[in-house]
């Protein structure tokens, strides 16, 4: 804080006309607060908790995003009830895989970015606009990704222009790709994608899409040690967000319990879930 007769006044940067992007404002005014502006010692890598698998499934009139709850650090389970799916704003959700600390900071920044734009401009960003803002943030993180601290999010939202759910995936360089029907990222994504290919049908209802997402996570956890399956002892279920014309909502614990129990019951004596 500065001192002097007008110490508490708003700094000039606040009053300067400029962009409605919070990230750009922070980058100009307080760059040390941005996760992507931090310098790391060259040539070193470090071990930090990693988030694992996210799956996204389109349904009739919306999209469902689910994530397991495990974070791993090498062979250690760093956290068993971490949330990796977040509402980005009223009509979109973001799921994260990769270095958990940086990913959660990026999500927090992304949430403020969207709300900031909404308040300054008095209108919502288009879905592509939101997806591109997230891409720019991932691009800014490339330096850290090259030192092992990569973040690979997945973005899904309800498109108010087209009235459908849409999915966007990213690579570490900030490339943004629209995915169709369903997608998965993270360490268990290979197994989840295989599962989704067999389970997904066009025009799934919202409830069926939730079940497909949970089953895909179950298959991922079955073969990937870094993905957490449903934890019956502690009653920890995946985080599941449903996004449709009414906005984002998280599936309640009671509803999830029912779905998880039915998936487990159906797999008794049929561990691969053959149909």
């Amino acid at each position: 804080m500065t001192t002097g007769p007008h110490a508490g006044k708003l700094p000039a940067a606040y009053l300067s006309p400029g962009s409605s992007s919070f990230t750009e404002f922070v980058g100009d005014h307080a760059p040390e607060l941005l996760p992507s502006r931090r310098a790391l010692p060259p040539g070193s890598t470090l071990e930090a908790p990693h988030g694992t698998t996210i799956v996204t499934v389109t349904s009739d009139g919306g999209v469902v995003m689910a994530g397991d709850r495990r974070a791993t650090m090498g062979n250690i389970i760093a956290n068993r009830d971490m949330e990796k799916v977040f509402a980005a704003d009223e009509y979109s959700a973001v799921g994260i895989a990769g270095t958990a600390g940086i990913a959660i900071e990026l999500v927090k920044l992304f949430q403020v970015e969207l709300e900031h734009y909404e308040k300054i401009e008095g209108t919502l960003l288009s879905l592509e606009g939101k997806a591109n803002r997230l891409a720019a943030m991932i691009r800014g993180n490339l330096g850290m990704a090259m030192q092992g601290l990569s973040v690979v999010p997945m973005f899904a939202g309800y498109d108010l222009e087209r009235n459908t759910g849409r999915i966007f995936s990213y690579d570490v360089t900030g490339g943004c790709y629209e995915e169709h029907d369903h997608h998965s990222v993270g360490s268990g994504s290979l197994f989840a994608r295989g599962s989704l290919k067999k389970l997904w049908r066009p025009g799934l209802s919202g409830d069926d899409a939730v079940r497909v997402a949970i089953e895909a996570l179950y298959d991922a956890a079955d073969d990937d040690s870094a993905t957490g399956g449903p934890d019956l002892g502690r009653r920890i279920w995946p985080t599941v967000a449903v996004i449709d014309a009414e906005g984002v909502r998280f599936v309640t614990e009671d509803a999830l319990t029912a779905v998880v129990e039915s998936v487990i019951a159906d797999r008794q004596g049929n561990p691969g879930g053959a149909r």
Binding site: L10, Y14, L15, P17, F22, F25, V26, H29, A30, L33, K108, L109, V112, E115, H116, K119, I120
Partner: peptide, 12 residues
């Protein structure tokens, strides 16, 4: 706009 920036930066 300065107020929104102040509030969002502080909250962040």
């Amino acid at each position: 706009v300065a107020g929104v920036r102040y509030a969002d930066l502080r909250g962040y």
